[in-house]
Design a protein around this nucleic acid. Structure first.
Lengths: 209, 209
DNA sequence: GTAAAAATCCGTGAAAATACTGACGTGCAC
DNA sequence: GTGCACGTCAGTATTTTCACGGATTTTTAC
């Protein structure tokens, strides 16, 4: 009874690297490798993997969106995140949305096998840093960045170096509206100014980088 | 006569992935894997690899700095960059500093073998996108972001969400001076506003991400 | 059908960033 | 010994952002 694995990552070399690692274990079978979130979803419909290993930063769709899609349409599939980021807001979002595991890329080599074994048995696995980020978020009570669709939209335009005025013109709303959204973004992301918003956009995967 | 390869990347799984790929070719021998730029430099002194394959974003040192170190102290070592970025300024910096190859991570799986073969024979290899970025930079005559030390210093403080006033106080200079540097940064990085500077800081590897 | 969340809008005012133009000293290279 | 890059500083003006403290309407969820 092999664990059937689907791997998603936009860098093909990561796909091969992960596959090479997993090949060492006979109880694991890689049934597919995809480098695109949309293709990943369609793949889930035809094949029925037990576990999806996916990068958190995917082109076209954030890892979080992908996770939500998977959990909604294929609740039986376990999801293990691979990510460079250990910011508590990102990790927390992933956990809240039902991820089964989250490991940092820099430790992936030594942790991925254990993570898959545990997840295949119905458990969960978090890298030490990730656990720390989780508790940090809990304790500080600071992890709320639940941005609305409109806020994300505005953040994306902001990152494209548009001023509030230009964003307002683009979205056909008042300048005031944009300013209100920015005000809320500053509060939610705990930023001092625009710089913080751009940093958040980068580290949270809202921009593809 | 095998080609001796040293691999540097801060994500161990990438090291394993690359090694697994290279293992397919008998003419290639991986003599070391390091996940830190400093350790990489010391390794170069003891072992004598023919080719160094390195990530462009390394903790503690940018790929560019590492390249310059290598070319200065170990001119015989060829350097092949692996990177997520194809911005013309980054690519151009790498080429100018003497890189022997530059491939994008998303194509690494299919290109790395060819790149190494070519480089081992004394040639150079660039991913198609990289070549495009190079010519784009040439044609547009826009690729100059040669930031001075002071400008980088200010950019780093800027990314920490400090205002010009606060930066001025930190560096014990006039607010005007900081504004001048920012103005020059905007021009050099071809940015419209602060947002562009933060983006540049992220994509160029000035901040560690 | 009601409560909560999200999106829209407004005024005032201060702070910060950007645009423009110009200048001065220092050190280094050719 | 003369450019030239670099870092330093100034004045003036405008635009943009941010901080207050509201408000209304639309959408969503139960």
């Amino acid at each position: 009874m092999k664990a059937r694995i689907l791997i998603a990552d936009d860098h093909e070399i990561m796909l091969d690297g992960i596959e090479a690692l997993l090949a060492q274990n006979e109880d694991i079978e890689v049934v597919g490798k995809v480098s695109d979130a949309c293709y990943c979803l369609s793949y889930l419909c035809t094949q029925k993997p037990d576990i999806l290993i996916t990068d958190y930063n995917m082109p076209g769709m954030t890892g979080l969106q992908l996770l939500k899609e998977v959990k909604q349409n294929h609740p039986a599939v376990k999801v293990l995140f691979l990510s460079m980021h250990d910011e508590s807001n990102i990790v927390q979002d992933a956990v809240m949305a039902g991820a089964d595991g989250y490991i940092l890329k820099k430790y992936a080599a030594r942790e991925i096998m254990r993570a898959i074994t545990i997840i295949a048995e119905g458990g969960q696995y978090w890298s030490p840093e990730v656990s720390k980020a989780l508790t940090r978020g809990m304790v500080k009570e600071e992890a709320e960045p639940d941005l609305t669709g409109r806020e994300i939209e505005i953040l994306k335009l902001l990152v494209r170096e548009l001023t509030s005025k230009e964003i307002a013109e683009t979205l056909f709303v008042s300048e005031r509206t944009v300013e209100t959204h920015r005000k809320n973004l500053l509060r939610k992301t705990n930023s001092k100014n625009t710089v913080g918003l751009v940093k958040y956009a980068y580290t949270s995967g809202i921009v593809v980088d």
